[in-house]
Structure formats: C-alpha cells, structure tokens
Amino acid sequence: MPEIRVDETRCKGCELCVTACNLKCIAMSETFSVTGYYPAKLAKLECCTGCGLCAQICPDLAIEVWK
C-alpha cells in the first residue's frame, strides 16, 4: 500500500501538504518534533495513493513517497 514518510527533523509544520492532499489523508501531529514544530503525519494510512502532490508542495523535502 502506498504511503508517505515524514522526516520529522525536517518538517516545519507549514501544513501545505495537508491542503495539497486531495484525499485528506495528512494531518498534523499533536506532539512537538525535536525542532519544535508539529510535524505532518499520514493520518489515514489506507487512503494514500502515492500521488506525491504533498511532496511536490513541501518546501523542506521532508516527505518521502513510497509506492
């Protein structure tokens, strides 16, 4: 099943990936990362199609797309 993996050390919690995801599978964590942001996470594992739009908009190269 396709999935995204967010590098919490790079993610700055800008939420652009959340808006980019047409299927609304990304949400923000409720806990701080080591860099002090609420990083993005794949909230609904089963809905990710691996389209990669979230990674396209990510300014921090924090999202890996696996398919």
Partner: peptide, 11 residues
C-alpha cells in the same frame, strides 16, 4: 532548509 516554514525557496 533554513528558510521559514512554508517559504517557497525550498520548493
């Protein structure tokens, strides 16, 4: 990237 959150430079 040392740019601010959401900054387009990184993209």
């Amino acid at each position: 990237m040392r740019y601010c959150p959401g900054c387009g430079h990184g993209i």
